[in-house]
Write a protein that binds this DNA or RNA. Structure first.
Length: 746
DNA sequence: TCAACTGCTCTTTTT
DNA sequence: GAGCAGTTGA
């Protein structure tokens, strides 16, 4: 099989250029994953590079897994020794190895968001700060940014720009000290620690560099400064650095990704680099591509890539203005049903995308009502679920009873009568003795009553808990992970605790069962690895592969999670000012540019059908607001748009143009020029005399009340009032300008 | 210690 | 509108 066979010239060039730094600017749908995997295969098969000398970095575990699978297929068994993983997983691996090499015995635990928050609250308590005024999330965000920029506490304190930052620097310092005390690294430390290690031990860096002959990085636009530094250090010896990305798809600045890495830094630091632009798009129709291009083109400071495609122009983009979110959802559901019936599309070929998760609810309602199967991407991930984390915390304790984060989490879960007061007392006492909380527990047992601030009654459950931990620690030495998990469940009576008779309780129990399945699979997959490796793997993974995922279902997801995916039909809902772009991003130009990229990412997910929707009125967070159409819609050339539908109930404050008013046009499949109502008409719209749009006998549909028949219609002062007999909801009187009412053509 | 209540906040999400 | 964290009262 020829690795280069199906590649276009640019892709081929990217695969074959084997030496020196390479910057690949890859547009959406340009087959960049393919380029990376084929390049790795090419290096191994044609250039005879040992897999051991290749390190490929991705951003998600999913991407890493997909890359490994593709390589397995491409190379058969010749992937032994190849490193393909996320930055974090790669760093964790290197760190363990390097620490061992240095002869240091310092195992570490990885702190996730929950552990971090608990720790920062501890810090606030210690420093006697009010967690209302100094919100843990905000502090953690600032600390994370500092770490991403490789600014330590000592450096941070020198550059504080406000009182808040000053407080933050104190929090940072103490937080970092506590992490060290607990032998814990948070996710940012996982990246930062290797960099610091290399600075202190050049020999360790040299060893690492010897190993890395080829370094490949995917989604380079998502790297932060530490990651950039790692790339530089890792690949510095031979400078065979291959980075692939698209500045137009950089949508993660809020988690400290710095798009300047791909835009500027790489070019500055590697003047000898080669640049290849992949402009051929294999995904979208000409129409969709043109529309997306005209949206992204308005961003400043970007390298324009004229995307080309061989696909046909395809159907025009459908723009739809709904009255409110429920009508918007109804339209989407109806259209999905229609595409399913007439468009030869299966449920799985369609996706609905939105800016915020809160928007999914209305869509779900509409889909449920019509019996359309759907799956929601996102929400609470498996390893973030309370019950899963609880059980994992017990496993962590069994592995390392000094794991303070785990101990705090489950000391009273399930309830065993150890209240907050007792816990505080225990922690304080442990601090005074300068031992871990677990050590303190053991002391309590050895010398009850003696100089101990905890009374006999409160001490009993503590002693029971200590005994439990001891038993688990002992068992961890001889049991497999699933056996240990069973022991945890049995000893804590977790099933009784979690299954409270409700449906949610059963669901939680199922998750625990699922976790047991994960451990069982782990044991079969890696029989030589123990509890420690399992816990690390789990800490670096956010989700579990669902086995019985229903294959044919409409996908509901945020624009962020849509990156990297594609669907024949895409609906983007809520294209309104304040939502997309989001109100929090409208002020700052840089953030606004990112919103635009987000819109671009969403649009370019579509292969054939693209629907852009906005609602005139939207209820969000409990209050209803009138929103203008998104400014991004204005950038889509009107000749690419069809199927506008503007109905009579537009409010009086925003009179509809005569052309669109009352005109009910079915979505067309050929481009149609129309003056969208969200664009001001060239000439002021003539005052349209209001007439009667409904008459007795008309069949109508209302987004809430369903279908009905008009009984009567009369003109009021400046509106029209219709009386409708609804099939399910009875007789209602409605004002045409406000009611989400549409006429069903006979 | 726990259940009921109150008030606050509500962008995006991976590791 | 709803979910969550923190507070209050028993």
């Amino acid at each position: 099989m020829d690795i280069l066979a199906d590649l276009n010239p640019s892709q081929r060039e990217a695969v074959q250029a084997i030496e020196g730094p390479l910057l690949i600017l890859a547009g959406p749908g340009s087959g960049k994953t393919r380029v990376i995997t084929h390049r790795i295969a090419y290096l191994i098969r044609e250039v005879q590079v040992s897999p051991y000398h290749i390190v490929a970095v991705t951003f998600t575990n999913k991407a890493a897994r997909e890359m490994r699978e593709r390589l397995e297929r491409l190379l058969g068994g010749r992937t032994q020794g190849l490193t393909v993983g996320t930055f974090h997983a790669t760093c964790a691996r290197f760190l363990r190895r390097d620490i061992e090499h240095l002869g240091r015995d310092r195992s570490f635990v990885i702190y996730d968001a929950d552990d971090q928050e608990a720790l920062i609250k501890q810090v606030l308590k210690d420093l006697q700060l009010n967690d209302k005024q100094y919100r843990p999330g905000a502090l953690l965000g600032r600390i994370s940014r500092a770490k991403s920029e490789m600014v330590g506490p000592a450096e941070f304190v020198k550059h504080t720009e406000s009182y808040w930052e000053e407080v933050c620097s104190r929090v940072y310092e103490r937080y970092q000290k506590l992490l060290l005390d607990r032998n814990a690294l948070d996710f940012d430390d996982l990246l930062l620690t290797p960099v610091q290690l290399y600075q202190q031990h050049p020999d360790v860096l040299a060893r690492t560099q010897d190993r890395i002959v080829h370094l490949l990085v995917d989604e380079f636009q998502d790297t932060n400064l530490v990651q950039y530094e790692l790339v530089k250090l890792w690949g510095d010896q031979l400078r065979n650095i291959f980075v692939v990305g698209d500045e137009d798809q950089g949508i993660y600045s809020w988690r400290n990704a710095d798009i300047a890495n791909i835009q500027r830094r790489f070019r500055q630091d590697y003047p000898e680099r080669r640049e290849i632009i992949l402009t051929r798009n294999y995904r979208s129709t000409r129409t969709i591509l043109d529309a997306a291009q005209s949206v992204i083109a308005r961003n400043p400071d970007r390298t324009d890539k004229q995307l080309v495609t061989e696909k046909v122009a395809g159907p025009a983009i459908t723009l739809y203005e709904a009255y409110d979110e429920s009508e918007e959802s109804d339209y989407v559901a109806l259209e999905i049903a229609r595409l399913y019936r007439e468009g030869a599309l299966n449920w799985g070929d369609m996706a609905v995308m939105y800016r915020t998760n809160a928007q999914s609810r209305a869509i779900e309602d509409a889909l449920v009502r019509r019996g359309i199967p759907y799956k929601l991407v996102g929400g609470t991930r498996f390893y973030q679920r309370r019950e899963v984390k609880d059980v994992l915390a017990y496993l962590r304790l069994a592995h390392n009873p000094a794991d303070a984060g785990a101990l705090e989490r489950v000391i009273n879960v399930p309830r065993r009568g150890i209240g907050q007061r007792t816990q505080d007392e225990l922690v304080r006492w442990a601090r005074r003795l300068d031992v871990s909380t677990y050590e303190a527990l053991k002391k309590l047992r050895a010398a009850p009553g003696e100089d101990v601030p905890i009374s006999g009654r409160a001490a009993r459950p503590l002693l029971d808990f200590a005994r439990l931990v001891d038993e688990l620690v002992e068992a961890a030495g001889r049991l497999t992970v699933p056996e240990l998990l069973d022991l945890v469940l049995e000893r804590t009576a977790y099933s009784e605790y979690i299954r409270d008779g409700t449906e949610e309780g059963e669901g939680r129990w199922e998750n625990v069962q699922e976790l047991r399945t994960v451990t069982a699979e782990y044991v079969t997959r890696s029989p030589d690895e123990g509890l420690s490796a399992f816990l690390e793997e789990v800490a670096l993974v956010s989700d579990v592969d669902s086995l019985e995922e229903q294959p044919q279902a409409v996908t509901l997801l945020t624009l962020h999670t849509a990156k990297g995916l594609e669907f024949p039909a895409v609906f983007i809902v809520g294209m309104e000012e304040g939502l997309l772009p989001h109100s929090r991003s409208i002020e700052a130009p840089a953030q606004l540019a990112e919103e635009r990229r987000l819109c671009y990412v969403g649009m370019t997910r579509a292969k054939d059908h693209l629907y852009l929707l906005h609602a005139f009125r939207r209820t969000l967070y409990g209050n209803s607001r009138v929103n203008d159409a998104s400014r991004f819609l204005k950038d889509v050339p009107t000749q690419l748009i069809a199927g506008r539908q503007v109905r009579g109930e537009r409010p009086l404050s925003r009179p509809a143009s005569s052309e669109s008013r009352g005109a009910w046009r079915a979505p067309a499949t050929t481009p149609v020029r129309a003056t969208p109502a969200w664009q001001e008409p060239a000439a002021p719209a003539p005052a349209t005399p209001r007439g009667i749009t409904f008459k007795a006998g008309d069949k109508v549909r209302h987004s809430k009340f369903g279908e009905g028949t008009v009984i009567n219609s009369e003109v009021t002062r400046d509106d029209e009032q219709v009386t409708v007999a609804f099939v399910g909801a009875g007789v209602k009187k409605l004002l045409v300008s406000y009611a989400p009412l549409e006429k069903i053509p006979a």
